[in-house]
Amino acid sequence: MTRRRLRVICAAVLCAIFGVGLFASTVSPYSYARQFRERPNAAPSASHLLGTDSLGRDLFARLVYGTRVSLLLAPAAALLATLIAGVFGGLAGLVGGWCEKLVLAAADLSMALPLLFVLLALRAVLPLDISPILSVIATFVLLGLLGWPSSLRVVWATTRNLRNSDFLLLARATGCGRWRMIVRHVFPNLRPVLFAQFWISIPLFVLTEATLSMLGLGVMEPLPSWGNLLRGLEDISAVSANLWRLAPLILLVLVVICFQLILPAQEETA
């Protein structure tokens, strides 16, 4: 199978998963919060396709709504992080001097901070009386705001190489203006790197949110996310008895694989 074909299949799978997430309220027969208290930990059946969780909530409904939360907000956070990295990394690479030193020092400082603890601390100082929807948006905004440093270093290194390239020297010599040079010459050459950074960040943020939710600090109950659904897998022996509980994990692995396969190959980005 050629790489292009594989990419098409992965894109189709991702589109299907995104689609289910987008139309969660149509696809799912129940609300994600409804507790069927007479049926906790129920096995899959016609009324509950993936069974129920320990509070009797329909696992299929929670998976579908959780997909919406994780797969819509993770790309948004990835976009935010890539934008920050693109703007500041590009600026540092092109301008050089004190600006470069300042931006790189900020990136180094951010990379030295333990992201998880910073997120825990920031979440702790947020007001408590925010709705679950706002809480999940806040979580992903924080992920976006804090997830830029590694992308920034890649963008900075690429821009620095571009700054010293012959074609930019030629453009400058022929009197090309600064903005035209950025838009027509620098940005097209940065685009594959920015795309790659964006695609890489999505699964990274999905996994970080999953980790935060595993710590009980991500998306607030009763809103589902892949992260808090994965918490049901903490108890290995309970999972071995109820294998359908692996559904969120399978979906997460599938999405991460699809994103990785969609990424442009090394020779394509070069």
Binding site: A33, Q35, S54, L55, L120, R123, A124, L128, D129, I130, S131, P132, S135, L215, G216, L217, M220, E221, P222, R231, E234
Partner: peptide, 30 residues
Amino acid sequence: SGNAAREKIATMIQQDLTQVGIKVNVVTLD
């Protein structure tokens, strides 16, 4: 956070109180 039983209690209370028209938000903190 990290106490599964308390988180479940909070989520169940959240649903119980909807019956008397009260909206409850649940927040887990370290």
